[in-house]
Each structure stands twice: as structure tokens, then as C-alpha cells.
Design a protein around this nucleic acid. Structure first.
Lengths: 100, 100
DNA sequence: TGTCAATTTGGTTATATTACCAAATAGGAA
DNA sequence: TTCCTATTTGGTAATATAACCAAATTGACA
């Protein structure tokens, strides 16, 4: 239709595990094994999520020795995630104002 | 897990039709019938998409006569959508630089 | 080159999403 | 109230996602 490439970005972030991974990567690059432990899912599951994030252009990977480190593709992602936070806050406020 | 509420926001925008609808609403409020014509899908399909957007707190609806008008719940959504644009641009640039 | 740990891929099953159609509901206007 | 249009809801089928396990692959290092 239209807007497919942009929708892919939102879709990639529209899963709790993938969003959590991105939030962690804001702090520092992480290898797959660390992320796997943090999330507590099977390694293959994590790897697939990372592939989705990479294909969406949100993260990038880099090898160092035997491990692969993932990091945010762009610092602007931080700002973007804060935007979601603002929208969420707005939503909660709207719901609260209905009560009063 | 974590991040569920925020993931819901991204998920809502992670569908081409819903993203397109939000883009249209940036210009002006629209009724369901107009959006239906713009998208070219069944009215019930559009209505369900709008419900998802409303539940995510991204749009709100208001009756006027026999029609229901939808509009953005927050102007900050415009800025948020631009953030996706920036990420997409970044991705394309990264892909281009690999070629050279 | 062979080994070993890290990572990815494939298979399978369960669940979620999406679209259309048909029917129900709601609400303004006659 | 009754009609008529706009909107929502429910049913159903096709497709997409997601999780786990098992197996394959990759690449650094001995």
C-alpha cells in the first residue's frame, strides 16, 4: 500500500522483548549471550528478534572474538523511544481526566 | 515481561493501513467513511484498525451529527512519526554506504 | 586443520492478526 | 416512533508471529 518501510520500524519495536532489548542497548552494546540471559528465552528466539531489529535498521552487529555485539544503529533511537514514553504519559493523563 | 504498554503503541503503528490513517489525521480530522474511501478496504476493517489506534491512545473519536470524526490524540504524534522518518533515512544511508 | 563455543537456521506447534462478509446497533431526521 | 445511514460487532478462513527444540553453521584459536 504505502508507508510500508516506516511500518516495519514500528512493527519491529512492537514486541515487548524487542523493545526491551533496544532499551538495554541504549545503555551499552550487548552480546547475544548477555541479552539471552537478560530476557530469559531460548537463544534462537533472541537471535530471531535481533534479526528483525537489524533488518528494520534499528540495531547493528559487530564481531569481537567469538562473540557478536549488538548496538543501536543510531542514537536518534533514544529520542524516538522517549517519544513513545510521552505518548504513553499522554494516554494515561487522558484516561485519568475522564475519571474526574 | 516489561515494556508492554509502550510496545502496544509501536504495535498499533506497525501496520501500513494504521500508519497511513495516522498520517492522514495529521492533516485534519476525518470521518470513518472518508478514511474507508482513502484506504479502499471494507468499512469494518477500517473500524477495527481505528479501535486499535484508539485503544493505544493515539487517536480519539467525536460524534458530529451522524458521522464520527477521528483525530490525533496528541500533536506530539507528528513529531513521533518524524522520528521514524529519521530512522528510515538513517537506514537507507547505512545501506548506501555499504555499497561504496 | 580440528575443536569448541557462539550464533543462526529449520521444523513444528500454538497463538495472534487480518480481511471480508453479514448482521446488529446507534442515533439523527422526518 | 419509524426510517435511514453510519458505525460496530461477530463469524470464519487465510496468513503471519512467536516460542521451543534440535541441528547446522560460523569463526577464533590451539
Amino acid at each position: 500500500m504505502w508507508s510500508n518501510a516506516r511500518a516495519t520500524i514500528f512493527k519491529a519495536l512492537g514486541h515487548p522483548t524487542r523493545l526491551y532489548i533496544c532499551e538495554r542497548l541504549q545503555e551499552a552494546p550487548q552480546c547475544v549471550c548477555e541479552l539471552t540471559e537478560l530476557v530469559g528465552a531460548d537463544i534462537s528466539t533472541i537471535s530471531k528478534h535481533l534479526t528483525i531489529l537489524r533488518n528494520a535498521g534499528l540495531v547493528r552487529s559487530e564481531k569481537s572474538g567469538t562473540t557478536v555485539y549488538y548496538s543501536l544503529a543510531c542514537n536518534c533511537l533514544t529520542q524516538f523511544l522517549q517519544g513513545a514514553e510521552a505518548l504513553l504519559k499522554r494516554k494515561v493523563e487522558a484516561e485519568y481526566s475522564v475519571l474526574t
